[in-house]
């Protein structure tokens, strides 16, 4: 069973913080298919957080196809993030190193590189438009 936490002042809506934590737990292998998420009532009482917020997070995860509710029983992990095998990482990393070298040669400093990377990750790609 995973434990939730809430960081106020982060500017991130509390329900999104819960969504991120479930996704992170899936990525780290702390949660896998068939596992039950904590009951809404228990999360509310333990974390001191609004039960509506927990419900909203669980609904969002349901829309993403990651969990499904079984009425009267609980909410269960029903999907995976489909993370590629670690063997895929190495070639991607080599490409990234080549790209970083090109960016530094173009005169970008660390912060500009990070900003450009974040901005590109967030903005929809041509295919998604």
């Amino acid at each position: 069973m995973i434990e939730f936490r809430i960081e106020p002042r982060s500017g991130v809506a509390p329900y999104l913080q819960l969504v991120h934590q479930v996704r992170q737990a899936l990525r780290l292998g702390l949660l896998s298919e068939g596992d039950r998420l904590p009951k809404v009532k228990d999360v509310a009482a333990k974390v001191a957080i609004n039960p509506n917020t927990v419900l909203k997070a669980y609904r969002q995860l349901e829309n993403e196809g990651l969990v499904s509710p079984k009425p009267g029983v609980g909410t269960f992990v029903s999907g995976t993030l489909g993370a590629p095998a670690v063997s895929e990482h190495e070639p991607l990393r080599r490409e990234l190193i080549r790209w970083l070298a090109a960016a530094r040669a173009a005169g970008l400093d660390e912060e500009s590189i990070e900003a450009l990377f974040r901005q590109t990750v967030r903005s929809p790609t041509e295919e998604e438009r």
Binding site: V40, K41, A44, A45, A48, I49, N50, P51
Partner: peptide, 13 residues
């Protein structure tokens, strides 16, 4: 924190 936990438990129950 204890008070808010008690309050949220009431709301959820």
């Amino acid at each position: 924190r204890a008070f808010l936990q008690g309050l949220m438990e009431f709301v959820a129950e």
